[in-house]
C-alpha cells in the first residue's frame, strides 16, 4: 500500500468524520466538500471492488478482470481521483441522465477556466486530485445503493475505468465485457464491512452524529475490517504454501532438464551424432518443464499479490486505528476541561 494511498484514505476518512456534518446534499452545490458521506461510500466501493477483483482466485483457463487491466492502476485511480456528490442532474454528451460523470484533469482545466478561475487557482485545485474528478448525482446513486447494489458497483467500476482511459462515454463497453451477472456476483461477495459503511452513510445522512460517535463507529468499522483481513491473510498463507512447493518442484525439474540438455551435448560446439536423439528428447523435456514452471509462477504471482495487498491493508488500518484512538483520547480530555 503506497504512502499516498494511506494519506489520502486518512484525509478522506477524517473528512468523512469531521466535515460531512450530516448535511443533506445542497441544491447547486457542485464544488462539493469531498467529505460527503456518499462520496466516501463511492470511494469505499472503489477500494472494495479492487479488493474483490484482486482476491478472485486464479482460474487458469478463464479470462479474468486482472487479465484486462492492471489492478494496481485501478487502485491508483481510486487513490488519486476526487469524488464529489451533487444534487444537480448529470447528463452525458447525448443528453441522457446518468449517475456519475468523470472529468479528466484537462477537462477540469477547461471547465474551471469557464467558471472564471485563474490559472494558478486551477493548478492548485488539480494538484490535489491528479486523477481528475468524479461527480456523482446523489439521489440516483442513493437509489442504486438502496435498490440495486450491483448497479452501484457497475457505476463505480465504469467511472474508475474511465479514469484509466479504458471506457468510452457510455456503459456499453463495460456492460458488454462484464455483464450484470458479474456485478451481482460481486454483490454477493460484498462484505459486511462495506454494508456497514453504506448503512452508516444512510443513517448519518438523516441524523446528526457527534464527533465522538463517529470516531467510535469508525473504530468499529476498522476492527471489523482488521478481523476480516487477518482471517483472510491467514487463509491466503495456508493456500499459498502448496503453490510455493509446486513452484519449487517445477523449478527443480526445469533446472535438471536444462542440465540434461547440456549433458547430452558434451562440451563441443555441436552435439555428437550419437547424442543427437538424446539431446532432442532432453530439449523436449526442458520445453515442457519450462511451460509447467510458467504456469506455476502465474498461480503464485496472483496469490502473492493478494497477500501483499492484505498485508498493506492491515498495516494501514492499524496505523489509522492508532491515530483515531489518540484523537478520541484528546477529544475526551478536551471535553473535561
Amino acid at each position: 500500500m503506497t504512502r499516498s494511498l494511506r494519506v489520502s484514505i486518512l484525509f478522506l476518512i477524517c473528512g468523512f468524520i469531521f466535515t460531512s456534518d450530516a448535511s443533506p446534499i445542497r441544491k447547486g452545490e457542485w464544488s462539493g466538500s469531498g467529505g460527503d458521506g456518499y462520496a466516501f461510500v463511492f470511494t469505499n466501493l472503489g477500494y472494495r471492488l479492487h479488493r474483490e477483483l484482486l482476491m478472485e482466485p486464479y482460474k487458469p483457463h478463464q479470462r479474468q478482470v486482472r487479465d484486462d487491466m492492471s489492478l494496481a492502476h485501478f487502485l491508483g485511480a481510486v487513490d488519486n481521483t476526487k469524488v464529489i456528490v451533487t444534487s444537480e442532474d448529470i447528463a452525458d454528451k447525448h443528453g441522457h441522465e446518468q449517475t456519475a460523470i468523470y472529468y479528466s484533469p484537462d477537462e477540469l482545466r477547461a471547465l474551471y477556466k469557464k467558471k472564471g478561475k485563474s490559472r494558478s487557482e486551477i493548478e492548485t485545485i488539480i494538484k490535489d486530485f491528479p486523477g481528475g474528478l468524479i461527480v456523482v448525482q446523489g439521489e440516483r446513486f442513493q437509489n442504486e445503493l438502496r435498490e440495486n447494489m450491483a448497479a452501484a458497483f457497475a457505476t463505480v467500476f465504469h467511472e474508475y475505468r474511465r479514469v484509466l482511459g479504458l471506457e468510452e462515454d457510455n456503459y456499453r463497453s463495460s456492460a458488454s465485457r462484464y455483464d450484470l451477472e458479474f456485478f451481482e456476483d460481486l454483490q454477493h461477495k460484498f462484505s459486511s464491512v462495506t454494508q456497514e459503511v453504506v448503512r452508516q452513510a444512510r443513517q448519518e445522512d438523516q441524523i446528526a452524529v457527534s464527533k465522538m460517535e463517529k470516531i467510535d463507529r469508525e473504530k468499529q468499522r476498522i476492527e471489523k475490517e482488521l478481523k476480516e483481513d487477518y482471517a483472510e491473510l491467514a487463509q491466503v498463507r495456508k493456500s499459498r504454501r502448496p503453490f510455493v512447493d509446486a513452484a519449487r518442484k517445477s523449478y527443480s525439474k526445469l533446472m535438471n532438464a536444462y542440465a540434461d540438455v547440456l549433458d547430452t551435448m558434451g562440451i563441443v560446439a555441436m552435439p555428437f551424432p550419437s547424442a543427437y536423439s538424446d539431446t532432442v528428447s532432453a530439449l523436449g523435456e526442458a520445453g515442457s518443464a519450462g511451460m509447467d514452471m510458467e504456469q506455476k509462477l502465474s498461480e503464485l504471482e496472483v496469490i502473492n499479490l493478494q497477500s501483499q495487498f492484505l498485508e498493506g491493508n492491515i498495516r494501514r488500518n492499524m496505523d489509522f486505528y492508532e491515530k483515531i484512538d489518540l484523537l478520541r483520547q484528546k477529544l475526551f480530555l478536551d471535553s473535561l476541561k
Binding site: R237, R240, N304
Partner: peptide
C-alpha cells in the same frame, strides 16, 4: 520463504497490537 515469513510476522504483530 521470505514472503511467508513476512506474512507470519504481520499476523503476529497485528494480533499483539490489537
Amino acid at each position: 520463504d521470505r514472503q511467508d515469513q513476512r506474512i507470519s510476522q504481520t499476523l503476529e504483530e497485528t494480533r499483539i497490537k490489537m
